[in-house]
Design a protein around this nucleic acid. Structure first.
Lengths: 206, 206
DNA sequence: ATATAATCGATAAAAATTTATCGATTGAAA
DNA sequence: TTTCAATCGATAAATTTTTATCGATTATAT
């Protein structure tokens, strides 16, 4: 149970999946969906689906119909905070950093990528209209846009150093793509996005 | 509890984090680490750490010392199946697909990326020695290398179609980067890697 | 208007996971 | 050699999460 919201962590972890599913259904023109159908399509249990939704959505499900898709989407997005926009930066403008920089799906999640930063002069410039600055401009940018969150997309060997620079610049939340444990002071939160580990888990059925 | 192994799903989900941490410690020349130190460094509880490790590692912890890092790493990697190598393919050779294709950290996880595939003729060629083939060659490649797992890195609008082609070619495990719910027949497993959702969760503290 | 079947929400039970407690072990120091 | 403090492993308790049960609701068909 998540003290602040009264919604379990397990439920919160599943909400993005509901959103993905519900948006797909909406795109097909469906208006209502029952917990049983959702459960079947997503590989959950119907009771679990109802429990997940009960805490997040104000709207109750209608017997014989199920849940109103549009309302669910709105409530889940609101709950997850996809409404208020957050500015983020990327450190590392190699292949991965640039790919993330050019991804245009962040807006729907209330995220705006302000810029990327790189140590190498050859990386400086712009990608699809988003600027790539030298690391020297990190602090200034973070301060000006009041950025709290950053994506770390540098090679493993540079990860801790780049992480330190981000924190020094004022970043307090880091999403790291480097398979390297990061030491950070209290107050800074790190999450790891280990693509290789995810893939290996899939391959090996973990 | 994970029926087959006797190790809880929650524990399995944490194992990559242990690995990341332990490898970092090993790189610094440390040989032993106690559950208390691990817990503190990783934000877990000491009892939890001991419980996690007890099922995965054959080696017991030594009072006054803690756990032998090298042994833990070996046992966790073995448990997660990082030893036997799996071939995988990538569908979609845009910025993200190419970034993944050029990532050289997969080997440590027992993963070998065979090739990427793309519909667009301009994407065909090679990236850092890895070939990018036209979609027509997907089935042939999957069959020849007995590939089971694939990475889906195409735009949202093409996701379901590309997914269908992968399944048609014989892929049964898909790691999708597209924020689109995929309908797949039973026997096919999909995992979603929704970067925007992960980032939003970090920003909003979910 | 009534019966029916699908569906929900609430409550209870079961299972999984985390946290607490405490005696046992072990190397180091007195 | 004895004591001591750090650390573990095992057991138990508490908490969280999932699953089951069942009466209540509501559109549809008769």
């Amino acid at each position: 149970m998540n003290t602040e919201s009264g919604i379990s962590k397990a439920t919160v972890a599943r909400l993005p999946a509901y959103l993905r599913y519900l948006k797909g259904a909406r795109a097909k023109g469906v208006e209502y969906v029952s917990s049983a159908v959702m459960a079947s399509d997503m590989g959950y249990s119907a009771v679990g689906v109802r429990k997940d939704l009960e805490g997040v959505s104000s709207k109750r499900g209608k017997p014989r119909f199920g849940f109103e898709i549009a309302a669910l989407i709105a409530d889940i997005e609101k709950f997850l905070g996809y409404k208020q926009t957050e500015d983020v930066i990327i450190v590392g403008a190699g292949a991965l950093g640039r790919a993330i920089l050019s991804y245009d799906g962040f807006e729907k999640y209330g995220i705006r990528v302000v810029a990327a930063f790189d140590r190498s002069p050859t990386a400086i410039g712009a990608v699809r209209g988003k600027p790539v600055y030298p690391m020297e401009r990190l602090r200034e940018t973070v301060e000006r846009h009041k950025v709290k969150a950053g994506i770390l997309a540098v090679p493993r060997a540079s990860a801790q150093g780049a992480c330190d620079e981000m924190i020094e610049a004022g970043i307090t939340q880091i999403l790291s793509f480097a398979a390297e444990h990061l030491r950070v002071p209290t107050g800074v939160e790190v999450r790891y996005e280990d693509l290789a580990a995810s893939l290996a888990a899939l391959c090996n059925g973990n």
